[in-house]
Amino acid sequence: MSKNFEDAYKAEVQQNIPDLWNRIESSLPEKTPVVAAETMAPEVKAETIASADKRQNTKSNRKTKKNPYAWIKWASLAAAGLLLVILTPTVLGIGIFSLISGSKMSSDMAANESCAEEPQYAADAEENMMYDADGMEGGFTMDSVTEEAVQEEMAEDVATPESGVQSTPESEGKESVAEQEMGEQESVSAESVYGEMVAEGLKAKVSGIITSSDGIYYRVDLYFEGEDKEIANELFGNDDCYNGDELVVRVYYDITLKPEMLEEYTVTIYRVTTESSGAEETYLQYAAELN
């Protein structure tokens, strides 16, 4: 017969609670009591009020007494003003100078930085030229691959079998180029594209395709049972894309693995935090990498 682990564990820990009171009590620092006026005894309260009145009286007496040296205060104020008038131009001059030199320095630094970036840029351009010179017809470099382009390609790939269009040798050639490039692209992790990984090792079934203006998404049903469901509730409970049983996500654009309808996959879920999500639909807050 199965027992509830959480309850059993908590019960067991609570059976063995140590007695720490003596240890705590001996370590308590001395405390000055904070006494509120309302909680004081009447005689203490009266005494406090009386002493407060006394203090106030003394203060008012001090105020009415004329200070014979009051003129010194005014004289020192006038002297300070005069000093300020003399010193201000000098101080301002230094200030402006330092501001100008500071801005010059920062622009110099920016210029240096841009110069430092140039060799890398040049190296990239050189690499691209070499890549183009290999004779790849209509090919695209890795740098120029945008997610939209890949999504379009995914759309074509998905549409092809459904529309019954036969692939030509030419298109096969293109596919092999694309596959080759996607192979290189495998180094780009879903995490770097989308954002934080939130769950892995979940079972999922591709149950539908959602066509949106910014690409094609797959509806992926994740099966949650028992503890998995508890985890899912905590992870996705507040999200529109989760209805308690299934989670609608977009699929990571790794087109080397085309999602098959009704196929079951082990998936890793990412929270889409980057702009590259392009998700117009608010419920597409997660991406799934199919394994």
Partner: peptide
């Protein structure tokens, strides 16, 4: 550690 790792270990 990533949340995925936490949930994985818990599972």
């Amino acid at each position: 550690i990533p949340m995925g790792t936490v949930t994985w270990r818990y599972q």
